[in-house]
Design a protein around this nucleic acid. Sequence first.
DNA 1: CACATTAATGGCATCGGATGCCAAAATGGA
DNA 2: TCCATTTTGGCATCCGATGCCATTAATGTG
Lengths: 217, 217
Amino acid sequence: MLTSEAMPDAVTDAPTPRRSSARGRPVATSHAAIEQAAFRLFAEHGFAGTTMDAIAREAGVGKRTVFRYYPSKNDIPWGQFDRTLSHFRELLAEQPDDLPVHRAIHRAVVEFNRFPPDAQPPHRERMRLILSTPELQAHSVLRYAEWRRVIAEDVARRTDARPDDLVPQVAGHVSLAISLSAYDAWLAQPDADSARLLEVIDLAMTGLRQYLDLTRR
Amino acid sequence: MLTSEAMPDAVTDAPTPRRSSARGRPVATSHAAIEQAAFRLFAEHGFAGTTMDAIAREAGVGKRTVFRYYPSKNDIPWGQFDRTLSHFRELLAEQPDDLPVHRAIHRAVVEFNRFPPDAQPPHRERMRLILSTPELQAHSVLRYAEWRRVIAEDVARRTDARPDDLVPQVAGHVSLAISLSAYDAWLAQPDADSARLLEVIDLAMTGLRQYLDLTRR
DNA sequence: CACATTAATGGCATCGGATGCCAAAATGGA
DNA sequence: TCCATTTTGGCATCCGATGCCATTAATGTG
């Protein structure tokens, strides 16, 4: 999955608390609660039409507190992204070394987008919001950069290169390109389920190879 | 070129005036003048450290006027981008139909990045600012979207598909991925000139085919 | 030459996101 | 009860962005 779902409290370790110990004033909210409040308002008034004040009110906390949980309004739809990158790193490391590099990466990318269908808010709505809202499209590249970096590092390891070399960098960029194309196509299909997303990622990869060989009409 | 250079007044049709006729109050500045004022301040205080008020003062106009020439601070480094898209469209149309699609596109992309070396501010500085400033990296995807669209339309035409189909979309995304990788690599080389950029774009394409095992394993 | 027409300018108010600062609140433990 | 601890949230401030509109400086006409 490209996003980190805000799991129901029972699934994660708590209401995603910020505290470390159990002393001091207790938390008044959680990442999940803020996200859910925000998504309710986004659905009603759109992303731009929802102010941070309104989100704070809906979540029942002060605006200042919301900014403490999420560094910016743009970060809310993505959820707690950093938690997922280490998972992606593991998926890449799991792929056999004797596979052609691009196949190993592609498999990890597909696996990364396989996820339990009980996300809250749902994965598809989250991605629809992100990919159809210009501000969020723009903001997302900063997230993508870390994601690409993870790929570049794995490709570098597999090819005895450095992460900053051209081929690993291109691999990162192109993997992202494949994923974004796939998400667009997936979202364009009215009733595509989460399994269909994985198929479309495969199709996008096939499409790329086709494009690079194609001789025309 | 990915950006539209603010040419010296003599090269373009004027100080890039906003007026259509010659009646009414004359313009007080130009796109080029604002860009140059802005780049001076960016070099001195950084992008984030430069306020729109400061740019307006440096250019000798009101803040409100600057916003009339550029819709946002983020748009200043890109210059007048839209002017270059039609040029790109022409370059794509010029490529022979009997070429493999990916070769035609790649050639147009390379040609698009060939440009006269007398830009003001210089192409390389412009791209370095854009690609090294997070806010600008983010904002740029909105520009890239139009650029990708132009490619998707040309690929669709060449392959009897629709621009929104998967292969044209992937082609757009991947061409962008190649270009961005190339720019990063080019900027990483201390004294690379503008001719070197074109070579690096070729190298990035080669790198992609290598990554995909199309050439050798 | 005076004056209407035209079009860009720039001041002003306002909004919303973001940030620093700090007192207040709420808990556990001594 | 008081203290240490930690989060909260109010307040002020900055900055980008936008709407509104009076002002300014040209042109062209009578």
